[in-house]
Each structure stands twice: as structure tokens, then as C-alpha cells.
Design a protein around this nucleic acid. Structure first.
Length: 587
RNA sequence: CGGGAUGUAGCGCAAUUUGGUAGCGCACCUGUUUUGGGUACAGGGGGUUGCAGGUUCAAAUCCUGUCAUCCCGACCA
């Protein structure tokens, strides 16, 4: 049966909702696909459900093709499994928690690793049962600090989450690849632009991880691309270290007084005034070694102060730092931290000349000192002398100082060399629409998922997790497919195949349109039929454009010549065709 | 959590500066009209002005508190 606009539960809005900023949000509300129920929580109207179902159908078909089987968990879950993996605490305020009448703790699931792991543990206990891959399409709940942009970041959203279970690492590789391939097919079928980027493993633990980002200026993720095809989330970009040099070929380190130089700018200015370079080049911020003091807080609440040395022209990227120090929280050190560590002379911190790695004037500090990958052996730096208003020049890594390790948390800039050596990196924004992840044995260990191998020995299962944001995908599709008039769905997700407008007041128009609709449906096409009488053509055309079905047929005044108009929503092209050949053209 | 803005009819807004008892457009209902680009006219229904206190003869408007929403940032498998 066609969807009849005379009957459809729908009210299109002529004006933009005041609370919607981005196009997808604006248009999905205006065109009557969704309504806001609470911040980041949306009610689905018939048109919205139709599009969501289309996306889910594609996902289901490709999951089946990849050998994954569908299950369905409750969204309302008891506390215990999440307690076992530590995530009841780790998730913090992002978890929706509630209690039943007996005051037992429950949560609305933000993701289902625990439940899938326990389900497989419940049913399977032999290597012969594996590998297995399960998935569900289900509502997830996260109490985001700031939901935004309609469906793009909601507090309730639909996710397809799949989990693979293997005995061996090679098996996990194969399962991962199967899901990754399925994702490529899904996004291609849905006509979504995507880039596969290396992702940071982050708090999920595990090793290999890739994100599917859809490039978009409103994206919340920043990623890099190289001419040679390297792509990574900015959190996961690996900095290319310059070649090492002979430390002993450099000039000896010298301490210079540097009054009133608490910042890099003031320091560079003073250096150019008081300490001209032998080669005549001007000192630059990149010649200085900036030492940033960070406070790490572990999930257990333990606080550690670390000092990170990086070139003075680079800032610490908060996201990269968070990722690199995960699961610790990272924040700049406070005044209290400095007070507790008097060897840190604010504005004049540096690795001590002659020490191996420790910081501080007397060389006894126990603080960890980590260096940016650009600070390689043989490089010379201007840096703090750990005495107020004094800096060291030509302090050489490998000769005068060393560190406890390398940490790659400096901001990534467009133009930085790509790790694949193919040229400069380009920066772009993207929306995360999928994530494939080799979890490894973290959850299986925490929850005791073991099977017997062919030797009758218990082995821990290794897992992968694979997510697609279904409702976010819908927002991405709406975002990428619209114009000033409204939405323009790709055919693969359009709420109907054909949109038929009866434009006119004569009965024959409606009778002819009715017949055309029936013929189209007989050929297997789904149809939205604007059969509203007493609605002017202008309104009907406007709604057709707003709703965004790509193929529109107008049955109206052309009938005098036995013709109807085929209207391509995307190109705007209208073409008159013989009524009797219209169906053939459309199927 | 920090910064900014806003809460008035289903939606978009005005009236707040200067207190006088709430108005416009869209949507909705009735009638006539119009039918290939949101037709025109006439009539109509719908509001405890976010909430709670206070000042005042009188509060959407002034004062205090509170709640909520949106945007930027922080945060975010």
C-alpha cells in the first residue's frame, strides 16, 4: 500500500526550528521525520522510521553475508557484569543508572561487550564452536555531557554492535577483516563517503583499531590524510622523528641569564637580542624545548605529575594526551602541584645538564620525564635551567640530557610529514560512523570466557567488537544530501522509491495518479502518494522537495497531452513522458 | 564543569528599555475562492508569559531565587 499524504501522520514546518543548527537536524525536524523528546532524545515519526528501517536492512543483509547472526539484548541491564569489568565505575557520569523497587542497581546499556561475552560463555565451551560472530541493532544510552546536532550525538541512539569470538589471534584477524569488508560494502551501498583511519585503542584496551569517518565540516573528529593514502585519526597519528645526529658535533651547552622570559615568545626575543647565532639565522620557537607539566589521574584516583618536553612551537593536544595516557585523566598541573614539587621552576623548567634523565637542579627529582619524538639524539635546544630567569643554550639530547621515554602528544599540523613518507599531511574533519576493533582477551579474561582447545586445555577466547551508528548514519546521510529546499535521499535509504504528486483538481488527475501508483506498486516499487485534495500545487511541490524522495512523478496538467512529468529531485530536471511509458521508465 | 544566549499559543517571533492586564505570521477550524510553485478574502478556536517568592493599586515587563533549553569550550567505546 502506498503512503498517502492525506492519511500520513505528518506535519511539515515552513520555518526552521529555533534549536536546530545543522542542516540534518533542521531538515529532519522540518520534514517530519523526527521530533525532539528531550535533549539528545528523539521520537521517530513514520517517515523517520522508514529511513531507519532501510539503513538497518542494508546492515542486516551485509552482516548475514559476513556470517554474523542477529541476537537482541535488553537495554536495561543489571550492574554486576559491568562491575566485573570495572566499567560501572569507569563510565562515570556517562552511564544512565537506575534502581529497581528493591534498590538493586541497573543501567541503560551504553554498549554490550559484557553481555555478549557472557552469552557466549553461557552457551559455548569448546573450540569447535568457534569462531562465532554475533550482532544486534539496538538502542544505546549514554548520558553525554553535551548532546548536539540532533541525531548526530544523542543520548539515546541506535547502534549495530557486533562481536567476534575466536580461539586464535589469526582467527581474530580473519573475523576483523570480514567485518571490515562488510562495513565497506554497507557504506558503499548507502552511498556514504567514508575514510578508514587508524584509531587509538584508547580505554577499550586491545590492539588494532580503525574508524570509519565520513568527511564533514561539522564532524567532531579530526583526521589526517597523506598523498600516499595514509589516514589516521589525529589522536593516533604517529610523528615522524628526524634523523639522529652526532651529539658531540654540537656546541657546548651554556647557561645565559634570561630575565622576564616566562613564555616561549619572550624567550625567543631575548635569544635573538642577546645570543646571536653563529650561522646568522634567527632563533625561532622551534629551537626551544618547552617542558609542560601534566597531572595524570588514574581510574583509582592516584595522581602523578609528569613532565613532557616538546619543541616550543608545538602545543600539547588534549585529545592526543588523553589517548596516550589512557586510562588516566590528563589535566595541566595546578599551582598546588607546583608547590608540591619545588624542583619545577615555573617558566624555567628543563632537563638538567649532565643528568641522565631526572629533572631539577639537584638531579634528584623522581618525576617522569617524557620527550616528543622530534627530540632525538644530537638535537640542540634552548631550554630552562631550572633556575628562575636562566636558560640553557645548546643543551643536546643524548649528550646533556635524556628522558624516561617518548610520548607523542604534540598537536598535529597540516604539512607535517606523513608516516608513510609520501608527503605532507592534510587535516580534515569527519563524523565517526563505524569502528572496528580487535579487543583481544580483555573482556574474556575479566568475565572468564574460556573454551577447551583440541588438547582439552582451557584457553581464553579473543574478541573483536564492531560498531555502526545507525541513527548517526541517518544524520550523516541527511547532512550530505540536501539543498536549500530540503532533503535529497540516496535511493538506497529513501523512505519510498517514488513520490507521486497529484497536482490539479479534476477527478481524472486523481484517478490517473491512483492507477499509476497501483501500477508502480505492482512492479514492486514503494510509493509516497500526495493525494491531498484542496492543497495547492505549490504546497505539494514544496513538501515533495522537503521530504526528499529522489524520484518524483507529477500527474497534472500534462494529462491533457497524455503525459506526466518525471522530476529528478537531485538535479531538478523535469521531463514529460507518455503516461503509458511512465511505469516502464520508473522501474 | 567554564563562557555566552534564550525561555511569551503546536512552530517562528513581537510587546520587557519606559509596569496598565498579551499581539503578529505560519499551522489548526468554518465558509467562499484558487489549482503547475507555499492563492485570496471573511469569520473562529487556542496562553495560569518556564517555575516559586517579592515589590506595586496594577507585573510578560522591576527584584530575588530556581529550573530548563540552545550554542562555544572541556568531556565523549
Amino acid at each position: 500500500m502506498p503512503i498517502r499524504l492525506s492519511q500520513l501522520f505528518l506535519r511539515t514546518l515552513r520555518e526552521d526550528p529555533a534549536d536546530a543548527e545543522v542542516n540534518s537536524h533542521r531538515l529532519l525536524v522540518r520534514a517530519g521525520y523526527i521530533r525532539r523528546a528531550a535533549p539528545g532524545i528523539y521520537t521517530w515519526l513514520p517517515l523517520g522510521l522508514a529511513v531507519k528501517a532501510k539503513i538497518e536492512q542494508v546492515v542486516r543483509e551485509e552482516m548475514a553475508a559476513a556470517g554474523a547472526q542477529e541476537v537482541f539484548f535488553p537495554a536495561l541491564l543489571p550492574r554486576e557484569p559491568y562491575e566485573a569489568t570495572g566499567r560501572w565505575t569507569e563510565y562515570g557520569d556517562n552511564l544512565f543508572r537506575l534502581q529497581d523497587r528493591k534498590k538493586a542497581d541497573y543501567l541503560l546499556a551504553p554498549t554490550h561487550e559484557e553481555m555478549f561475552t557472557l552469552l557466549v560463555k553461557d552457551l559455548y565451551s569448546s573450540y569447535k564452536d568457534l569462531p562465532v560472530c554475533l550482532y544486534q541493532i539496538q538502542n544505546k544510552y549514554r548520558d553525554e555531557a553535551r548532546p548536539r546536532a540532533g541525531l548526530l550525538r544523542g543520548r539515546e541512539f541506535v547502534m549495530k554492535d557486533a562481536y567476534s569470538f575466536d580461539v586464535t589471534d589469526e582467527g581474530l584477524q580473519a573475523s576483523y577483516q570480514a567485518q571490515r569488508d562488510a562495513y565497506e560494502r554497507i557504506f558503499k551501498r548507502l552511498s556514504v563517503d567514508y575514510v578508514i583511519v587508524k584509531a587509538d585503542a584508547g580505554a577499550m584496551g586491545g590492539s588494532a583499531s580503525e574508524e570509519f569517518l565520513s568527511p564533514s565540516p561539522i564532524g567532531e573528529d579530526t583526521f589526517v590524510r597523506s598523498p600516499g593514502g595514509y589516514a589516521a585519526n589525529v589522536e593516533a597519528v604517529v610523528t615522524v622523528a628526524p634523523a639522529e645526529q652526532d651529539p658531540n658535533s654540537q656546541s657546548p651547552a651554556v647557561v645565559h641569564p634570561s630575565p622576564n622570559t616566562p613564555t616561549i615568545e619572550t624567550l625567543v626575543a631575548l635569544a635573538n637580542r642577546d645570543v646571536p647565532r653563529a650561522d646568522g639565522r634567527q632563533w625561532a620557537a622551534a629551537d626551544t624545548l618547552k617542558n609542560v607539566v601534566l597531572a595524570l589521574t588514574s581510574p583509582e584516583g592516584k595522581r602523578e605529575i609528569v613532565v613532557v618536553g616538546l619543541p616550543g612551537d608545538r602545543e600539547v593536544d588534549a585529545k592526543r594526551a588523553e589517548a596516550a595516557f589512557s586510562p588516566n585523566e590528563v589535566e595541566p598541573a595546578t599551582e598546588a602541584d607546583f608547590a608540591a614539587n619545588p624542583e619545577l621552576v615555573k617558566g624555567y623548567i628543563g632537563p638538567v645538564k649532565g643528568s641522565t634523565k631526572v629533572l631539577g637542579l639537584d638531579g634528584t627529582s623522581k618525576l617522569r620525564y617524557l620527550l616528543d619524538p622530534r627530540v632525538v639524539n644530537g638535537t640542540a635546544w634552548i631550554t630552562g635551567a631550572n633556575i628562575s630567569e636562566q636558560h640553557v643554550f645548546d643543551l643536546v639530547k643524548g649528550r646533556d640530557f635524556d628522558a624516561d621515554g617518548v610520548i607523542d602528544i604534540a598537536e598535529v599540523r597540516a604539512g607535517d610529514p606523513a608516516p608513510d613518507g609520501s608527503g605532507p599531511l592534510e587535516l580534515a574533519r569527519g563524523i565517526e560512523i563505524g569502528h572496528v576493533f580487535q579487543l583481544g582477551r580483555k573482556y574474556a579474561e575479566a568475565l572468564g570466557l574460556q573454551v577447551l582447545d583440541e588438547n582439552g586445555k582451557l584457553v581464553t577466547v579473543t574478541m573483536g567488537s564492531y560498531g555502526i551508528g545507525v541513527t548517526r548514519l541517518m544524520a550523516v546521510l541527511a547532512e550530505a544530501n540536501n539543498d536549500e529546499k530540503g532533503l535529497i535521499w540516496p535511493e538506497s535509504v529513501s523512505p519510498a522509491d517514488i513520490y507521486v504528486v497529484a497536482a490539479g483538481k479534476d477527478d481524472v488527475v486523481y484517478q490517473t495518479a491512483e492507477k499509476l501508483v497501483a501500477d508502480l506498486e505492482a512492479k514492486g516499487k514503494s510509493v509516497i502518494f500526495d493525494d491531498r485534495v484542496k492543497v495547492s500545487p505549490g504546497v505539494k511541490f514544496g513538501d515533495a522537495e522537503l521530504i526528499g524522495v529522489p524520484n518524483i512523478v507529477i500527474v497534472g496538467k500534462g494529462l491533457e497531452n497524455g503525459e506526466v512529468d518525471l522530476w529528478n529531485r537531485r538535479t531538478g530536471e523535469r521531463r514529460a513522458v507518455r503516461l503509458d511509458s511512465a511505469v516502464a521508465e520508473l522501474v
